[in-house]
Design a protein around this nucleic acid. Structure first.
Length: 488
DNA sequence: CGCGGCG
């Protein structure tokens, strides 16, 4: 988990506050021009500031995850100085011990260096933060939550909402490790088992930090089992999905309002690797006007660390052949593999077909029981299984460093819109490989004209070329993985 | 031709 070094950047403040009439998308477009000037623009440029890595051209790891431009737009006249070391953040000794001893971190990653001062220093403005997949966003908000808790107060003070049960569990596990020496109590509020005690008969939550999924958190709040008056910080992980119209918008806004009602000064943090223009405009209006924001250009969102390929399949059955003849043959040499499918039934059927053919594979999707889901995830995280078939339940946030290969068995498609790929889901899926700047590869299985259109739209959107793997031979796939840096 | 997490 040791992260390569980056130069500390001092973030000066832009003179004029951002006019309310101006949309975030406008700023991003202007910044697209400004950032091409790179190092010369270390001074103030428009409202946005370019934070360049001064060591960009000096010797360092080729796949440094910090080799990126993060654009910062700060509000008001609060100057923020990037934190070169965790010591610069006035964290408690117990928290520092957790970072160094338990997490084995050496220094803040770029997004951590920039966002943590914004989160932790008064007046604790709201923050919208976009950062690359695998760049350490979780550490940002977990550290934010832990360090804003008053250990003397035995009541919920930090709350984090996640889109899936798995992500909530993963996040609380990170929080418990990081906060190991702090004595801070935490609780995970996720869909309960069928035979669990009903919320109305449960004791109120005493834990100081709570992480959960929207429905369950909402339920605990409405039954008055999760008090909101002492909350100081509210985090939405995968915030674009949490605030998307076809996502969890209603639940998220309800939770925000319930908290605001009794507690007007709760800081809100919105974190994600993706914010499309539609949701970008909306999220800016859900937080306070004087919020800060960090964002990156879509072309720079980690699609360069992971090599992309496409394989044309004459029919759906041929997809199974690609998986068994090529992916399984070469896969075991390159680490773990996740195969993403579009529906729960495809997950189950593909799993069954491969097992019938004698391959070792597991699958996960939302209609499995909690126990089954937990078991599959645990086996995969423990490295007991090499290949996992999954719906988009694991597309976002799932952190398993040994995953180097992602298969898009089905391409992600936007719901309701014909011929439109879901660019954000594509990026999140690809982001499951190449964690913390490691090398990775993705194979997109293309079947039919619709898939071809979706694929070319994805290429255009990210401005990347996806190489076709043409010859149907193991050697051809091995060559692709060599090119991706996964094989010798 | 839908994923999730809720009723």
């Amino acid at each position: 988990m040791a992260e390569p070094s980056s130069t500390a950047a001092t973030i000066a403040t832009a003179d004029p506050p951002v006019p309310a009439t101006k949309s975030w998308a406008d700023e991003a477009d202007e910044e697209t021009n400004a950032s091409t000037a790179e190092a010369e623009t270390s001074s103030v440029n428009l409202e946005a500031l370019t934070i360049d890595d001064k060591e960009k051209n000096s010797s360092k790891l080729l796949d440094d995850p910090d080799d990126s431009n993060i654009q910062a737009v700060t509000s008001g006249d609060t100057p923020y100085t990037s934190a070169a070391r965790f010591e610069d953040l006035s964290l408690s000794p117990e928290l520092l011990k957790g970072l160094y001893v338990e997490m084995k971190f050496e220094k803040p990653s770029k997004i951590q260096a920039i966002s943590l001062p914004m989160i932790l220093s008064p007046p604790n403005r709201d923050l919208i933060a976009q950062a690359h997949n695998g760049s350490g966003k979780t550490t940002c908000f977990v550290l934010g939550m832990l360090s804003r808790v008053d250990p003397k107060v035995q009541a919920p003070q930090a709350l984090c909402i996640c889109p899936t049960r798995e992500l909530a569990i993963q996040n609380i596990e990170v929080l418990r490790r990081m906060g190991k020496y702090t004595g801070i109590a935490s609780e995970c509020l996720v869909p309960l088992d069928r035979d669990a005690v009903h919320v109305s008969k449960r004791a109120p939550i005493m834990a100081q930090v709570v992480i959960g999924t929207p429905g369950t958190v909402k339920k605990f709040i409405s039954f008055k089992k999760l008090g909101t008056t002492r909350l100081r910080i509210l985090v939405f992980d995968e915030a674009d999905q949490m605030l998307a119209e076809d996502g969890f918008r209603d639940d998220s806004l309800r939770i925000m309002k319930d908290i605001e009602k009794e507690n007007s000064k709760c800081q809100v943090l919105l974190f994600s690797a993706t914010f499309n223009d539609t949701v970008k405009n909306f999220v800016s209006r859900t937080v306070r006007m004087d919020h800060n924001k960090l964002f990156v250009k879509k072309e720079e969102l980690s699609l360069d660390a992971v090599k992309q390929y496409k394989v044309y399949c004459p029919d759906e059955l041929a997809k199974i052949d690609v998986v068994k003849d090529y992916i399984f043959e070469i896969g075991e040499n390159v680490g773990q593999t996740i195969i993403f499918v579009r529906s729960k039934i495809t997950a189950r059927l593909t799993h069954e077909a491969l097992v019938k053919l004698g391959y070792e594979v597991t699958s996960i999707q939302g209609s499995l029981s909690n126990e089954e889901r937990d078991k599959v995830v645990k086996e995969f995280k423990d490295g007991l299984t090499q290949v996992l078939i999954s719906t988009d339940i694991l597309a976002r946030g799932f952190d398993q460093q040994q995953v180097n290969l992602v298969i898009n068995y089905d391409l992600p498609k936007k719901y309701g819109v014909r011929d439109e790929p879901d660019y954000e889901v594509y990026l999140h899926r690809v982001g499951r490989a190449g964690r913390f700047g490691r090398k990775g590869a993705v194979f997109n299985l293309i079947c039919g004209e619709l898939d071809e259109r979706l694929m070319s739209k994805i290429e255009n959107h990210f401005g990347t070329r996806v190489t076709e793997v043409r010859a149907q031979s193991v050697e051809e796939y091995k060559a692709a993985l060599k090119e991706a840096g996964l094989l010798q």
